[in-house]
Design a protein around this nucleic acid. Structure first.
Lengths: 259, 259
DNA sequence: GCAAAAGTGTTGATCGTACACCCATGC
DNA sequence: GCATGGGTGTACGATCAACACTTTTGC
């Protein structure tokens, strides 16, 4: 038993919080789907040389920020999405913490820290992903400057370890959707067509699905409800619209399957 | 574009790392299975009153520690398991970060911080779970004092938010095993019987499985290999022993299923 | 011989997969 | 009338769930 006489196990070389002021940040991978392409929000990071012409740095980074002192992780992530888009009540999912001592070690990242007068210290980040509906994609994104949508599968050469964070967010999203398919409807409008849903699956998992089997599958799910309404203004046979019912979803999610 | 003239978006009330020295810790839920019960390692936390008789605090906490300044999360988790057991090469899985400003606010936790002369500050923890084989369960655990095995489903009234951390670790473990069933074999000896495996599934998911269907299922998995060997010293018909082949597992994990 | 756990097969329902042709609309 | 995507059915194989009796061993 640990008694009042035993002092806690703080080892000499540990010195928690004394050698280094840790920084805690939140980074958020914000996903959107425009019925064609999965996109994410990135911010530009540009550093011009002394002559004002050379671009010493010109790359992209995830929207992220320092955590406030009395803010919990979820609230921090919400704040970031809200800063970018003005939106509240967005689905947010913490998926991993990143904290390698070497995550800020690339030359351009050190240069950037020097530029913004930051001590090169240890920066932890709690990574979230977030899913926006198409009408939310077209928001101005002007609450933070230099934010734009970029096609997920084409981004490269990001700042820090943000490439890795994005890749892991996609893996986490894919896994989550397999287990909780309701998530995917956060990327679709309230009323969507069968091929929008199919296209979204194909885009997320980078696969080709058989349309007939997909229709059959979806129609067998009672929580995806066919509306009495069809597509408008399309130059082909208009398809039925569907909606996702979270009530019916909750009901049908009682059954389980294990091994 | 963000240029050299724009200073970064550090807001006044934010003051990263200046108002508060953050502490970063790792906590680890270490699981073991003794062919009956799922168990986890906990440490006793006892604080005696001035008369040396009253126990002001007498509860349990997860093994955890501060992260070293130049250590990444995975290494920190490994170190904790190693400190406890002397073991290396243990499977470790980061599953969530906990950082609510209120996670140290219960009366007994504040009392404890006062006792160990800690500033009540903000403590983040990166939570891991870890799976030990039965022969590893019986290690002395004497590298850190006051560590004992406790039945998972009976622990309560833990320190800090450790009850919640344990619950979420179990959820994460359950989910992970559904997707990557190889994990479960880390809780079994290298040679195990069919009913050990069945019992482990039943214990993890708290369900009852049909033995005939389970045998059929397991026998259909080619990565679980029947050995030419039976149980010894059991007072009933001895069962066949099996082993898990990670090579065959890797091969069979190419196929996918999505919706 | 008895307690305790091992081992085993069939049936019906459900689900996944492969595959090709006609339909409604805008232009 | 043509281009575009919408909508549909069948057959086979695989998998899942339900269900009860016999076998082998230690004591």
């Amino acid at each position: 038993m640990e008694t009042v006489k035993r002092k806690p196990q703080v080892k000499a070389k540990e010195k928690p919080g004394q050698d280094i002021n840790y920084h805690m940040t939140i980074d958020c991978v914000i996903y959107g789907y425009d019925s064609k392409t999965l996109k994410i929000v990135l911010l530009e990071r540009v550093l011009l040389g002394k002559d004002g012409k050379d671009m010493l740095i010109n790359d992209l980074k995830l929207p992220g920020n320092h955590l406030y002192n009395h803010e919990d992780f979820d609230a921090g992530a919400k704040r970031i999405v809200n800063d970018l888009t003005g939106l509240n009540n967005i689905e947010l999912h913490q998926f991993k913490a990143f904290g390698s001592p070497h995550r800020i070690s690339k030359r351009k990242d050190l240069l950037w820290f020097q530029h913004i007068n930051y001590p090169v210290t240890r920066v932890f980040t709690i990574a979230y992903y977030s899913l926006l509906r198409p009408h939310q994609i077209h928001l101005p994104l002007n609450r933070i400057e230099h934010a734009r949508w970029y096609p997920l599968y084409k981004v490269k050469n990001l700042a820090y370890d943000h490439q890795q964070i994005i890749e892991e967010s996609l893996e986490a999203l894919r896994t989550k959707i397999k287990l909780q398919p309701d998530l995917i409807f956060n990327l679709l409008p309230a009323k969507f067509s069968m091929s929008q849903l199919l296209g979204l699956y194909e885009e997320i998992y980078k696969i080709k699905l058989d349309r007939r089997n997909f229709y059959k599958k979806i129609n067998s799910l009672d929580y995806i409800v066919q509306l009495n309404e069809k597509q408008q203004d399309v130059s082909h046979k208009p398809g039925w619209l569907y909606m996702f019912s979270s009530d019916l979803y909750e009901q049908s999610m009682r059954a389980v399957n294990i091994i």
